[in-house]
Design a protein around this nucleic acid. Structure first.
Lengths: 200, 200
DNA sequence: GCCTCCTTGGCATCGAGTGCCAAGTTAGCA
DNA sequence: TGCTAACTTGGCACTCGATGCCAAGGAGGC
């Protein structure tokens, strides 16, 4: 583990952060993300507006936390996968390390927020772009790029997986499931659809 | 053609719009998108701040215009393609109708702006989501969805094509090409990479 | 107990975006 | 031509997210 300290300051910081997130998510689920102002959040959490923006750089960060910076974590997980594993499975497994970082209920709540708020959708996609840049080189090392320009193949593959994951998540939320295994299955269905149609 | 009128008001409106875009793009290319304020743009274009926001709902709209609303145009082009054409080619051709709406030089300038500005990237991706929702049903009609939930297959396929197009565009801008045929080739390479790896 | 480091919150400010309103311009009609 | 209805314009005030600056206060080492 990196940089996780147990000094009083750090523990306090994490506790405050959690309290703010709890208060904010409650408000977001009640009134919607855009309809909730930062002032309401800080009032509910008992923190000053100025301090809030030191804990969370943006309002969207309440929802996504440090997820955007977890590219290296996914990369490490990807490197653990055997070299001869199909890239799709390897990426799927690598990405699933993130789903262990939060309760399924909270994940579903966040998912619903994301699909209903343009601002959150945008941040979500930005996050994927960040991951793409981190993961693309390792993907290209695995699959080879032939004479394609560096980056093209890797980014296309990672973006495809993330797109299929997003489409699957939308369908998953839509059908009101709360079973992570079902999400995995839907992702596989989406990837299979892409595979099936690429051969035609 | 729909709704394109030649009343004086409409012609004036289009002319003003073009002038603002020209002035704004010049500023954006000089100083960057985020570093240019709307006040600078309206000063350079000789229009009031208030009127600006009636012409362009957001600052990003200067760059993208009504591209986000062109989903139906792409859809119409997709419907023109023969039913037995592979979905990838059909989508590629349908999307290419948009590249005829602007000069290649301006397209390249905009492309460079988009890759260097997070706000523009986000708007770009939002735009793709809008297109996805419009195109997905027709895609699913063509390829069939088996027993997958409606939307999943179509959105996955459209998102994959757009992702490959984006990756190809990035590589294309990177290599400093200005040949649209080369962009088409790179898109094909990206899609081929996805295809190749889906069979393993 | 003292000094240093870090956090806190208040204040002012910026930039994007919106509602409202008075004034001016265009279009249609007599 | 002149009148009216419809629409546009720009100014003002305001909201909301986000940032720089600064004085005050708590934590930890000595």
């Amino acid at each position: 583990m990196e940089g996780v300290s147990d000094r009083l300051w750090d523990r306090t910081r994490r506790r405050v952060q959690e309290e703010v997130v709890d208060a904010a998510l409650t408000l977001f689920l009640e009134q919607g993300f855009e309809e909730t102002t930062v002032d309401q959040v800080v009032a509910a959490a008992g923190i000053s507006r100025r301090s809030f923006f030191r804990y969370f750089g943006t309002k969207e960060d309440i929802v996504f936390g440090d997820l955007a910076e977890q590219g290296p974590v996914i990369l490490a997980a990807l490197r653990e996968r055997p070299d001869d594993e199909p890239i799709w499975d390897a990426l799927g497994h690598a990405l699933s390390v993130l789903s262990t970082r939060m309760s399924p209920e909270r994940g579903i709540a966040i998912g619903r927020l994301v699909v209903t708020s343009p601002a959150l959708r945008a941040a979500h996609l930005e996050k994927h772009l960040r991951w793409q840049q981190v993961l693309a080189p390792e993907v290209e090392r695995r699959v080879g790029i032939g004479d394609a320009p560096p980056g093209l193949v890797g980014e296309a593959i990672v973006a495809t997986v993330l797109a299929c994951l997003d489409a699957a998540t939308a369908a998953w939320l839509d059908q009101g499931s709360d079973d992570l295994e079902e999400l995995r299955r839907l992702t596989y269905v989406a990837l299979a659809a892409v595979r099936q149609r690429t051969t035609s």
